[in-house]
Amino acid sequence: MDLDDQASVNRLAETNGTDNMIVLLGQPDPDSTVLFAETVTRGDPTWAGPLAGVPLGLPVYHILEPDIKQQMDATLYDEHVGLMELSANVDEIVEEVRAYRST
């Protein structure tokens, strides 16, 4: 994850607390989903950025999760996510991101 973006996320968490805060991801494959989910829960796995060793423990969700989808505007969802729903490995992505919420 971009180092400046890690700093921004860290700052948000530090200044306003993490109450009621969640992370929503839009990665197209399981590998990059894991990378970002890991960064905002356990810390930057590459140990390069401001979140290295900072376990924010934020609840992390993916835009492809059915529970997330059903809360969003259906037309908008189809416009922005419709193709990825067809092309991505949805089951694996959902399984990976869920694993970061159960630990």
Binding site: M1, D5, V9, L12, N16, N20, M21, I22, V23, L24, L25, G26, Q27, P28, D29, S32, F36, V40, L58, P59, Y61, I63, D67, I68, Q71, M72, D73, L76, Y77, H80, V81, M84, A88
Partner: peptide
């Protein structure tokens, strides 16, 4: 999990769903 009322950090990706799209969807 209810998105309504949550504070969301949206991390998109160019090849997937970009940040502005996630923002619009979360706000919806």
């Amino acid at each position: 999990m209810q998105l309504k009322g949550k504070r969301v950090i949206a991390i998109g990706e160019r090849e997937g769903v970009p940040g502005p799209s996630l923002k619009a969807l979360a706000e919806s």
